[in-house]
Design a protein around this nucleic acid. Structure first.
Lengths: 173, 173
DNA sequence: CGGAATTCGTAAGCAAGCTTATTATATCCC
DNA sequence: GGGATATAATAAGCTTGCTTACGAATTCCG
């Protein structure tokens, strides 16, 4: 069997790129794009994109797998004196506050947000149990029905966590 | 607010209660019910509802708030020699395997399942940021659309985590 | 009864996640 | 320049979540 180079049905939602990164995609370029996007976001908001913040984001971008804080530290340690936890946590807080990084609750881990999705719209995470990589899918319609159901019981939703574990297309062979 | 269709198997009670527990509800009775339900489930499945398992469930039932493993230990320590972590984790595993307890991923905590909901159907959790209590809402329709969206990108979902943080009706005053 | 299987207790330990406290270094802006 | 403000580094430590290893107790069942 050759590569199951199945072209993903692009008809899905309103997302240009495939929601799941192909294992052979041009990762260098995809991280570069994410970095310039981060720069733009920070510039627009007059936030300082300092070296340590940049390096933490870079570490997270090194894969499409969520990394625990200590994994980030290990990653950074390869190219600089090992940073203290607090240093990394501060950078992560900053990156999350600016929508550049997501926290994957069910894994206690952090994921660089690869796409430039609308900040207000909700996303769901697809977490592959096999290769560990994570895809994002827009979950606006889902969010709507969830929100409606929640409100029906007098609950005012603020933040939603939708994380789905399973097997991604590339590992399902 | 919509009345969601209740398709229940014989022997199961209905989901007639509000999804969120009122602060002044008859908690003694609600835990008693949950205990007898647990007994029935265990009996039906020929599982042993041992004292320690019973006590762990009781501890979780002491509030509608999810408790961390160590909080459970603290709770148990009030009425017995402090149990070791492994003891509690074993009981929790058992209770989860039998659908009597949920794990709240975003909190690393455990919650006694108050209602007797259909085991196959999916639930979403509403977590109040203020009082910490948790309500459950049926999320079958949501699950369906999520699953469909996931499959569209070649992903095969196995386990879904839907946890919504916000403010409950009783704290919103 | 007596062996097998399940459950429980004891003891110890480890890694991850996150924090507090304090001092140093940039950066901004007047 | 120089004070105020934001950011980072250093150092230390705490809590929680969870595990391994192993022996004792209990229960099941032929």
């Amino acid at each position: 069997m050759g590569t199951h180079a199945k072209v993903l049905k692009a008809g899905q939602m309103s997302l240009a790129k495939p929601t799941f990164p192909a294992p052979d995609h041009d990762h260098g370029r995809c991280t570069a794009e994410a970095m310039t996007h981060a720069e733009q976001v920070c510039a627009r908001r007059a936030q300082k994109f300092t070296p340590i913040r940049r390096q933490v984001l870079q570490a997270l971008l090194s894969s499409h797998r969520p990394l625990g804080a200590y994994e980030v530290i290990d990653e950074l340690a390869k190219s600089m004196p090992r940073p203290a936890p607090i240093t990394v946590y501060r950078a992560l807080d900053f990156l999350m506050a600016n929508g550049l990084v997501h926290r994957i609750e069910s894994r206690n881990a952090f994921l660089a947000c690869a796409h430039d999705h609308d900040e207000t719209s909700m996303v769901a995470f697809l977490i592959c149990d096999h290769c560990g990589s994570v895809g994002e899918i827009p979950a606006a319609p889902v969010a709507q029905s969830l929100t409606a159901a929640a409100r029906a019981s007098g609950f005012v939703p603020k933040l939603s966590v939708v994380e789905i574990a399973g097997t991604c297309a590339h590992c399902r062979k």
